[in-house]
Amino acid sequence: MVETRRQAVVLLATLVLLLVLPALATAVGMPYLLTLGSQVVIYAIAAASLDLLIGYAGLPSFGHAGFFGLGAYVVGILAFHAADQSRFLGLVGGATQAWIVWPAAIGVCALAALATGALSLRTAGVSFIMITLAFAQMLYFLFVALKIYGGTDGLGFDSRNTLPGIDPSSDTEFYYICVMALVLVLGVFRFLVRSRFGMVLEGLRQNERRMAAIGLASYRVRLVAFTIAGAGAGLAGALDANLLRYVSPDALHWTMSGDLLVMVVLGGVGSLYGAFYGAVAFVGLQSLLSQWTEHWMIVLGPILVGVVLLARRGLWGVLAGASDGGADGGGGAR
């Protein structure tokens, strides 16, 4: 997937817009736009990692919130133990430095994805959807039951993770960190889907039998993809916990998985960058509708049904003209 000129222009314009958003928010006197922007960027990271699964690996996961929430809880739990000098399971002390906490969140989620993926990938299709959902829900119940970490009330902490030279209390600086993370993650994913690994994934999605015939084992390749996607969602979760300075089982709830899925489909399945535009549309719709009526879900629900039934290209396809037929050459825009 080498970008067309139109796609490159759209991406560049988006990046510029992202970079000037803090100044813009101050200029128009709507500072909450900055928080909304951080939220969009964080969701975009999680949704992009889900799109890697759905759009490229052809694995319809409905439990992505499990990794998102787990990443958030790693941040929360380490902050909790750092605050009262105690140890997690009596072994690991707390931490608040981002260079320890964030890789820890990514690593924990990658391990969790490896373990649940190893089981889930024994099935396919509709069972895969149900099983990924069930595993995420299992984590949800686990954290609801863990009263020490707040149970259903969740776990709040005082300050964001620290990075050398960065003021963690500054919303603007944190926003830029999120944007950097998004660019980094999209860069890695772009490299991955264009690599041999990505080609194999794409091939497996299109025709598993042929790939098996040329000697490629589906299970291991898919497990790697599942693990990477879990790690991506873990990073997003870690950032989300930092944004809110709070984590609760809601981040693990299955409706969160549904929301991420909505973003992927709104943006365009298998379009990599689409996840971002899907996140913009979802968060935008949600905040607009909820200003209008408290019963905003009664509007959003039918919109979703309509999008599924009528719109098939997604926002990225509309914006950047990526066609359903994969005119951009083999890579992914399907």
């Binding site: 409905f62 979703l304 599924v308």
Partner: peptide, 19 residues
């Protein structure tokens, strides 16, 4: 349609009926 589309549309239905 694909299972993913089915999941998404029926997810929308849940929102509608809950509300």
């Amino acid at each position: 349609r694909s299972h993913m589309d089915q999941v998404l549309a029926t997810f929308g239905l849940i929102m509608f009926f809950d509300e």
